[in-house]
Design a protein around this nucleic acid. Structure first.
Lengths: 200, 200
DNA sequence: CCCCACATGTAAGAGGTTACATGATTCG
DNA sequence: CGAATCATGTAACCTCTTACATGTGGGG
């Protein structure tokens, strides 16, 4: 059985305790969301698929709990989870619109470029703030559980990004002192000019 | 006209110089790929849509160049690009499978957890190496163009991540000295146990 | 002559988001 | 009793990737 991305998240959460689709969605939003999101539209169908494959099973203990369906992981499920954890393949995809904008900032007068970096700093500050809140809401735990390390990573990354932005803002402002302007104005028909050799 | 994500990339590259779909794909792969990818399956249809919308136009200068169709940005296209650059909305989505694995590492014996971090370090080292190559391939340029800043960001981020991983590996190895084991074994029927309170 | 780089394009499908539909229960 | 929260699910749609189909031109 090939685990889909969402399947791994579900199995992962279920390896900790029984949960319903609703629980999983809530948990994702307050934890993995920062590096791995999931929506109802994926979670519910995936729960059924995993149950069909025998990797999880409904634990329908009674107790008038509305229409709630909690699932628990099965032996094969835990095996599949461990196999995935150890398969050695891990993709990393960053989609950073602010970076993309900065990359194309040649199309903007110099004076406006710094705005792009300011917006980026704002974005990372927001993420860092939310992560800090989550961190503070944590009750102290013994040892150093893996998920705490992950939280530190998120916080550290955003802090690093904020510092990078601040340094970049300073650089751009210093540059603005040196000269004034440097707009590109060439439009349709312009052909190759300044930006032609950018490669990152 | 609402720019699609791929539309903005195309417009951005075309604001620098005339290019064909093939050129754009090549450029993306050696530059923005690290924070914004695009494939032929998106690029070619999007070129047609942008041309229909009048934001770009084919510059079919003759010169027996195979079936090549180069496009250039138009006045409205440059306007649309600038409007997008300044719209103030920028999403950032990180999809980091290694982090996800680490988050669920409770399901693994302690001794194997460090492998996950080692794999992450390897991944980031690979990305950093490629970015360094690109950086070295750069001819020196006057000033400090925006795209160079973006390259520095990619390099810096990956270096930061490598350091984070190394620190985490050291921590885990120190921990392994203290005690031995700590496997979780409870499967289907186990209900809520150790991992039940993780929130990040 | 063959292979590689150049070059354009499409079809299928994976993966994901958003919005909607529906209803139960709890708490103030 | 009304609002918020709990709870499940589906349909439409968007975005993107992969794989395929097709063909040109230049260099060894």
């Amino acid at each position: 059985m090939d685990l889909t991305p969402t399947g791994t998240v579900i199995l992962g959460f279920l390896s900790g305790s029984e949960m319903s689709g609703y629980d999983i969605k809530t948990r994702v939003d307050e934890s993995t969301r920062f590096f791995w999101a999931a929506s109802y539209g994926q979670i519910y169908p995936e729960l059924k698929r995993l149950a069909e494959a025998g990797l999880i099973e409904p634990s329908d203990q009674p107790g008038g709990e509305r229409g709630r369906i909690a699932y628990r992981i099965t032996g094969p499920g835990l095996e599949a989870l461990r196999a995935w954890l150890l398969n050695g393949e891990s993709t990393m995809e960053l989609r950073h619109e602010g970076m993309l904008k900065l990359f194309f900032a040649d199309a903007l007068p110099r004076s406006q470029r710094v705005e792009l970096v300011r917006a980026m700093a704002e974005l990372h500050r927001g993420k860092a703030d939310r992560l800090r809140l989550v961190h503070e809401a944590q009750r102290p735990v013994e040892g150093d559980p893996p998920w705490l390390a992950v939280l530190r990573f998120g916080l550290g990354f955003n802090q690093w990004a904020i510092e990078w932005c601040d340094a970049e803002i300073a650089r751009l402002e210093a540059e603005a002192g040196d000269d004034a302007g440097g707009d590109i104005g060439t439009v349709a028909g312009g052909g190759a000019q300044a930006g032609a050799d950018r490669d990152v």
